[in-house]
Design a protein around this nucleic acid. Structure first.
Lengths: 197, 197
DNA sequence: TTAGATTACGAACGTTCGTCTGCTTTTGGC
DNA sequence: GCCAAAAGCAGACGAACGTTCGTAATCTAA
């Protein structure tokens, strides 16, 4: 039928599937992704789609991986240039907020976290693992800031991380559910208070 | 077959269905509720289940209504005795936090908000309406507190409401996803800072 | 006592789900 | 140029989906 692709192009097919699945999952949730709809949208057979992953669950994990990669490339990667401590934290969270506000995207990772927060399994584990990595990153920077005196000595890192998490979640809700154009403004204001520069 | 129920008992059947559906939706999301599983769990026929509502979407809206009712009975209702302003706000949010922490329940309303934040339709509209009512309630109390001098004159009510929302969302995530036993402690600490008494 | 709703049933509808089985085509290394 | 490996297709599988029948049993009201 259609001309076959080179090996790099077949790897690109996998990427194409994951991009489409990520878009679908952003709207309908990770469980809402279906092989049939993906196949129709990509003009492939269902077997051609799932053949790259084996099972739907493996596909879900791959989608999650893709989303995490993009997040890492976008958020922490853009903060490496900032000085460790509050400056890096402010940069990272600022990038995250901007990222969420783009096209009302929100945060895929936290959305899936809510979707799977009561469904034990590999997907839930993967979400928790990813969020734990982020959490460790944040806590590390907070401790650096405390040690250097940027933050008060009596700062409770876990408490601050909790409040920063709240800012992110509130922003995601404001952006996606309420389409609030002032969400980023409010988020930045809270951020500035939590992370004095 | 089985003896028919009186009219009050048949109304109780509807309640029984909604309770079961609410439990199912808490775990699998509102879209994850299926007529077949409900019927099996309630030992009824699928037709008997859906007959009370007509369509699955109507059932979803009824489940949402049930959840909102319970929330109202539990959270704002317990705060009516508190003095308007920061005291009532602190009481209401404190109750909400306790409510979320019970059995790691989390907040059904915000979970569904995340689930449907990109799916236009009656369910999304109903979630937004319910959250808007809560938001109006909170903003009203904040303004009362500002007027009475409990909160600084330059308080931005929307900003404070945004940050309170963040506390709730962070608590829900900590409780449901991470099973964090310290979630309520952290939430109360943030609350105390946002709403000085 | 009777008539009309109401309630729930069993059964089937057509659709979609995820998965699997052959089969054909293409690819990459020899 | 050849050949195993991989990619993708068509199609079918059983199961589950939401919905809709016709019917039997029950309740309410006249």
């Amino acid at each position: 039928m259609s001309p076959r692709k080179s090996v790099t192009e077949t790897a690109a097919t996998r990427t194409r599937i994951l991009e489409c699945a990520l878009a679908s999952a952003s709207a309908d949730g990770l469980e809402g992704v279906t092989i049939g709809r993906l196949a129709a949208e990509l003009e492939m057979s269902k077997a051609g789609v799932i053949g790259h992953f084996g099972t739907k669950e493996a596909l879900q994990l791959a989608v999650l991986d893709t989303a995490v990669d993009r997040f890492v490339q976008r958020v922490p990667a853009r903060a490496v240039g900032a000085r460790p401590g509050t400056e890096r934290l402010a940069r990272a969270f600022g990038e995250w907020i901007d990222y969420m506000a783009e096209d009302g995207r929100g945060c895929f990772l936290t959305s899936v976290g809510t979707e799977f927060d009561d469904r034990p399994g590999p997907v839930r584990d993967a979400v928790i693992a990813a969020l734990s990595r982020w959490s460790a990153y944040v806590l590390d920077e907070i401790r650096t800031a405390v040690d250097s005196g940027e933050l008060p000595q009596d700062t409770d890192p876990d408490q601050l991380a909790f409040e920063l998490d709240g800012v992110v979640l509130a922003t995601a809700q404001a952006v996606r559910l309420h389409h609030d154009p002032l969400a980023t403004t409010r988020a930045r204001r809270t951020l500035a208070r939590l992370l004095p520069s």
